[in-house]
């Protein structure tokens, strides 16, 4: 079980959640959502709070134990897929390197990688290419297979649409749906596009400048003014408000917003005084 307990970084403010299903995290580029990945992998500095994997605090584990969690239990697809690949190695060697460094059998791992690539719509021949030869769509598929082939419990995917056109995005979303349905891994999808989250995630969290403003199960049922503005694409330049983080931009702002707390509205938890 992966759990964040008031995890605070330079960009995230007391982020708490238990990842128990496929989770979508909706936020803009300045939301600090990428820190959620770095924290799970123990590669970002944690100012306050805890990040627990199976009840153990990731930040109190020794590096050797942490390496057993990284990629074997929690893996990630970073927004720029080329950054996950060593440019000097063929695609196959990139898989082999991860397999060897995690004590996995090299040939069996490659066979598994080929199966994942097939689900993602790529042929075996892609293993013989070098990263610079890959189109953005191929690179994205390879990086997803790279995150999946160790059969981790959690796969964190940042900004799947980066560098892809509409066609590539739609194909990747379809491939991820196939993977979600055929693997036992739980996915954490971090994105700024609500339509992507709506199709991939079982539950969602909306982040505004590092703060959770809403969480729920269906993005077609949302209440917080920020979530509504974000879906309608009616946003100004983000400023951090006092109390409710969105109060500096919100059209419904009142002095009461300074003392906002989270309330239950419909099926969602919303940090907004309108619904008190």
């Amino acid at each position: 079980m992966l759990e964040y307990q008031c995890s605070t970084t330079d960009k995230l403010n007391c982020f708490s959640t238990v990842v128990s299903s496929n989770l979508g995290i909706l936020g803009q580029k300045d939301s600090g959502k990428e820190d959620i990945i770095y924290l799970a992998l123990g590669i970002s500095s944690l100012k306050k709070g805890k990040v627990l994997y199976d009840g153990k605090d990731i930040y109190s584990l020794k590096e050797e134990y942490l390496n057993n969690i990284r990629w074997k239990k929690i893996s990630a697809v970073f927004y720029n897929p080329y950054n996950s690949l060593n440019p000097l190695y063929k695609v196959s060697s990139n898989f082999e390197e991860i397999a060897i460094s995690h004590g996995l059998e090299k040939n069996a791992s490659l066979e598994i990688a080929v199966e994942y690539l097939k689900i993602l719509g790529e042929k075996k021949e892609i293993l013989e290419k070098y990263p610079y030869d890959l189109s953005p769509l191929e690179a994205k598929r390879v990086s997803i297979a790279l995150a999946m082939f160790t059969d981790p419990e959690y796969v964190m995917i940042d900004d799947i649409e980066y560098g892809l056109n509409d066609n590539g995005r739609a194909l990747i979303v379809n491939s991820l749906i196939d993977l979600i349905e055929s693997s036992r891994s739980k996915f954490v999808i971090l994105d700024n596009d609500p339509s992507v989250i709506s199709r991939l995630a079982d539950e969602f969290i909306v982040l505004y400048m590092g703060n959770i403003v809403e969480r729920g199960n269906d993005l077609r049922e949302v209440y917080h003014p920020y979530t509504i503005d974000l879906i309608r694409e009616e946003l100004g330049i983000n400023k951090l408000g006092i109390g409710c983080p969105y109060s500096a931009n919100c059209r419904f702002v009142t002095p009461k917003c300074e003392k906002v707390r989270t309330t239950k509205v419909g099926n969602n938890e919303v940090k907004c005084i309108i619904y008190w």
């Binding site: 509409d166 979303v173 749906i177 199709r199 995630a201 079982d202």
Partner: peptide, 16 residues
């Protein structure tokens, strides 16, 4: 190819 809001695990009718 445009992705619109959809149901959970609903695929997009798209070709490569």
């Amino acid at each position: 190819s445009r992705i619109k809001m959809g149901n959970k695990h609903e695929k997009i009718d798209v070709m490569e």
